[in-house]
Deep mutational scan, measured.
Amino acid sequence: TIDDAFRAIERAIQAENEGRYREALKHFLDGGEMIVTAAEKEASQKVRNLLLHKGKEVLEWAEHLAEWILE
């Protein structure tokens, strides 16, 4: 659900702030994927587009974090 997705993102932010970057990455990926999944089930085109945009933002952040971890 969207609530689960945002809880995962909150955990990711907390982990990132505490320097637990790999854990943060996992939570960002989980949250982003949950948002995209919820968007695919959404009946309203406007809400679907907003959710897809937010999911994409979260997944892009996860990608940047992963690249930073690997440096």
Rank of each mutant, 00 (worst) to 15 (best):
K46M: 11
E57Y: 08
I2D: 01
L70R: 13
S44Q: 08
F6N: 04
H53T: 13
S44H: 08
E71V: 09
K54V: 15
S44C: 13
A43E: 10
A38K: 03
A66T: 05
E18M: 09
D4P: 03
Q14V: 10
N49P: 00
K26T: 06
I13L: 07
I2Q: 02
E18T: 05
L51E: 01
N49L: 11
T1M: 12
V58I: 13
W68S: 03
K41P: 02
A12Y: 03
A66W: 13
M34W: 09
A38R: 04
D30Q: 14
R11E: 05
W61K: 04
R7W: 04
L59C: 09
E23V: 04
F6L: 08
I69G: 02
E23A: 06
A38M: 13
G19A: 03
E67P: 01
N17I: 13
E16G: 12
A39H: 02
D30L: 15
A38D: 02
L25C: 08
A24V: 03
I9W: 05
A38P: 02
A62M: 08
G19T: 05
L25K: 01
G32H: 15
A38G: 04
E63Y: 14
V47N: 05
I9N: 01
E63S: 14
I13S: 02
I13M: 05
I9L: 09
L65M: 05
E67C: 13
Q45C: 13
N17T: 10
I69C: 11
T37P: 01
I13G: 01
I69D: 01
E63G: 07
E63K: 15
E67A: 13
A15P: 02
R20W: 04
E16C: 15
G19I: 03
I35F: 15
I35W: 06
M34C: 07
E63I: 14
R7F: 05
E16M: 15
E71F: 08
A15F: 10
L50Y: 13
E18H: 06
K41Y: 12
R22A: 09
A15H: 06
L70K: 12
L65V: 02
A62C: 04
E40I: 15
S44W: 10
T37H: 12
I2P: 03
E57P: 01
D3S: 12
A15T: 02
R20Q: 04
K56S: 05
A5C: 10
G31N: 02
L70N: 11
W61N: 02
L50K: 08
D30S: 11
R48L: 06
A66L: 13
E23Y: 03
E57A: 09
I69E: 01
E16A: 15
R7V: 06
M34N: 02
A5M: 06
G55P: 02
L51I: 03
D4T: 05
N17P: 02
G32L: 15
E57I: 13
E10S: 10
V47E: 04
D3K: 14
Q45G: 09
L51N: 00
I2E: 02
A43P: 13
D3N: 11
A62E: 00
I9S: 00
D3L: 14
D3C: 15
V36H: 08
D3P: 06
A15Q: 01
M34S: 05
D4F: 05
Y21E: 01
A39Q: 03
A66E: 06
E63W: 14
G55T: 04
M34P: 02
E10M: 14
N17G: 08
R7A: 09
K56N: 05
F28K: 00
R22G: 07
S44T: 10
K26I: 08
E33Q: 14
L29P: 01
E10Q: 12
L65N: 00
K56G: 03
G55M: 13
E71G: 13
A38C: 12
E63Q: 13
V47M: 14
V47S: 04
W61V: 02
A24N: 01
E40N: 13
T1L: 15
V58L: 11
A24F: 04
A62L: 07
R11W: 08
D3V: 13
A24W: 05
N49R: 09
E10H: 13
E40P: 03
G32T: 09
A66F: 07
E42Y: 09
Y21H: 04
K56T: 04
I69L: 10
I2T: 04
L29S: 03
K56V: 06
D4M: 11
L51V: 01
A43Y: 07
